[in-house]
């Protein structure tokens, strides 16, 4: 067990190193920071001085090490566009994105798994078929269109909910939350639905197909042949076996929620890191892009690690090494 966890942690560290390399290469090859920092009137001496100052005259591995060292301490340099430290901007923006992701992730997982189980058990039922058809529309509708549609309906036509922004926020130290004010709560409804809908349909369809697969297995047929109640068969035997693949994909989907937040945040002008990132891409603001990449990968790697540990809790085949067999 311990070796397994250790192995996973090591792998995660490796992933982070690779991502770090990608982020660092962006600094190296995309645009010249000297260009960005010095104006038109510059001398060769200025350039040389700045290169030495920034350590750009050092060999590649040394620079990479420096970059990692700084990154670990949360120092990603200064945004080309805003002229402020990237870390500072990120801390300011992160709570908005995290709150949005958490709310829509919760929506997606709870409703998605529920509907998936329902549509699998009632495979040929009318309601189940209707839900499946609607879900395909959900998969085919780009997130931004859902957002625009919701804004049009609930903000423009009905005027019930705000079309953009985060509403009033309350500060707790560096964390700002919109979940404690009525305007903040109102403001998060539409973005959360927009962001969660796509993930929800994906999770639902996955749960359904995995569950149907499991329901075909011999041990489920055997459980039925023993006369066990449908409830027991469906939930105790089938659902639990469905969970392993579902957790994998759900983990990945949670990661995507943070990435898809970029789109939702753009549509709703939600002041989170996604909006920050998309602006950075448009203006080739490399430090912000690199920092966002690192931040996201830390989150993803964390989620994956949790997923791996959940496998352990669910699947006994991983816990025991098959002792006693033969």
């Amino acid at each position: 067990m311990l070796t397994y966890v250790l192995k996973r942690v090591l792998q995660s560290a490796l992933v982070l190193l690779v991502v770090g390399l990608v982020a660092f290469s962006m600094f190296q090859f995309v645009g010249d920071p000297i260009d960005n920092m010095l104006g038109q009137e510059r001398t060769d001496a200025d350039i040389a001085r700045l290169r030495a100052e920034l350590g750009l005259d050092q060999p590649f591995p040394v620079q990479y090490y420096k970059f990692l060292e700084n990154a670990v301490q949360g120092d990603f340099g200064v945004s080309y566009r805003q002229g402020r430290p990237v870390a500072e901007i990120l801390v300011e923006r992160a709570p908005a994105t995290l709150e949005l992701a958490a709310v829509s992730g919760f929506l997606a997982i709870s409703i998605g798994i529920g509907l998936g189980v329902f549509t699998a058990i009632r495979k040929d039922g009318f309601l189940a078929n209707a839900i499946m058809s609607i879900s395909l529309i959900g998969v085919s509708l780009p997130t931004f269109l859902i957002g625009i549609l919701l804004i049009y309906l609930f903000s423009v036509e009905l005027g019930w909910l705000p079309a953009f922004g985060r509403g009033d926020v309350v500060k707790f130290g560096w964390w700002s939350t919109g979940l404690l004010t009525s305007t903040g709560l109102k403001a998060i409804i539409l973005p959360a639905i927009t962001l969660g809908l796509y993930q929800m349909t994906l999770i639902m369809r996955l749960v359904r197909s995995e569950m149907l697969e499991v329901l075909r297995q011999d041990y489920v047929r055997f459980a039925r042949a023993r006369g066990l109640k449908d409830r027991t068969v469906n939930f105790r035997h089938a659902l639990k076996n469905t969970l392993v693949p579902v957790i994998t994909v759900t983990g990945l989907q949670l990661g995507s929620i943070i990435a898809f937040a970029i789109i939702t945040e753009t549509v709703f002008q939600w002041p989170g890191v996604g909006l920050l990132f998309i602006n950075a891409v448009q203006f080739v603001d490399i430090p912000v892009m690199a920092a966002y990449l690192m931040l996201i990968s830390v989150m993803f790697v964390g989620i994956n690690l949790i997923v791996d540990l959940l496998y352990f809790a669910i699947d006994p085949r991983l816990r025991t090494d098959g002792k006693g067999a033969h």
Partner: peptide, 17 residues
């Protein structure tokens, strides 16, 4: 009436003791 299936590898739920 009980039934015994062919393949003992797949007849038992792997996640339950």
């Amino acid at each position: 009436i009980s039934m015994i299936f062919q393949d003992p590898l797949t007849s038992l739920n792997p996640l339950l003791t």
